[in-house]
Design a protein around this nucleic acid. Sequence first.
DNA 1: ATAATAGAGGATAATTTTATCCTTTATGAT
DNA 2: ATCATAAAGGATAAAATTATCCTCTATTAT
Lengths: 147, 147
Amino acid sequence: MFSRACQYGIRAVIYICGESQKGNKVGAKQISEKTGVPEPFIAKILQDLARKKIIGSTKGPTGGFFVDGRHQELTLKQLVDAIDGEELFTGCSLGLENCSEANPCPLHGEIKQIRLSIVRMLTQKSIKEFAEEVEKGETVLSRMIQT
Amino acid sequence: MFSRACQYGIRAVIYICGESQKGNKVGAKQISEKTGVPEPFIAKILQDLARKKIIGSTKGPTGGFFVDGRHQELTLKQLVDAIDGEELFTGCSLGLENCSEANPCPLHGEIKQIRLSIVRMLTQKSIKEFAEEVEKGETVLSRMIQT
DNA sequence: ATAATAGAGGATAATTTTATCCTTTATGAT
DNA sequence: ATCATAAAGGATAAAATTATCCTCTATTAT
């Protein structure tokens, strides 16, 4: 469903958002530790997101990644779009180039509903809300038993 | 959502099923032409499916791929399982190894419903029914304007 | 029996995705 | 001003996926 880069990106940005709520910027190393994502890989992904202004970043000591007012009501949908593109939401699920209402693939009718559900999942909560759930311990971002 | 191999496989098997209803076996070349899938690639995928007894195949003149009584109520779910594995249906959508009810990832609750919808889409109709829709011209398996 | 046909199987390429490393640049602490 | 820190950027490597090709084997038509 999501590429690995996208899975990593989602976990990382939810974590960053949680820390940002507490006023902390976080570095790639810390993100890697807390989300179980390989450090150089997440660094690349976040570099990309920062370039696209999906998240913020600053260099130097006390620097790191963050999400602030400018990215306030950021949703996972925007994140997925930025990392994986819109293929999941707009492309034909069977790979037909010209699949459409007039020319539907066998799954065309059904997949529409599923896509709506996916979009709903990715937009009904802001990333901030997802981060709050993690803070409350209701959900987790990495394998447990980490200090 | 589905790998390219899986998209190709679904299109090919629906086509094969339609021809099988008419009593025809079809070769990789014909399948390639009718579904717009690269011939050597679909040959590999189908070879695999035949080995797994998802479809049938015979060699030699008048040979080819087919689905018969033994694969009668074959569903797309079985096909997807065979080609892409069950990751889509059972793995954590954010890639957490130990995601569970007790230890849920942020999307855990929502993704369950979506998976059910996907499974429903892939099981509520048999492949034979999908093939009938194609025969009726209600749905298509490749870009249009093919003789 | 022989020849032609078509899948099986194995080897190999090409491309994309995943992952890592190293140098440069910006920034904050001192 | 200097130094340490951390992201940016570019190069590279490894692995997986996608795609192709060639030989072998089974089968059918003649």
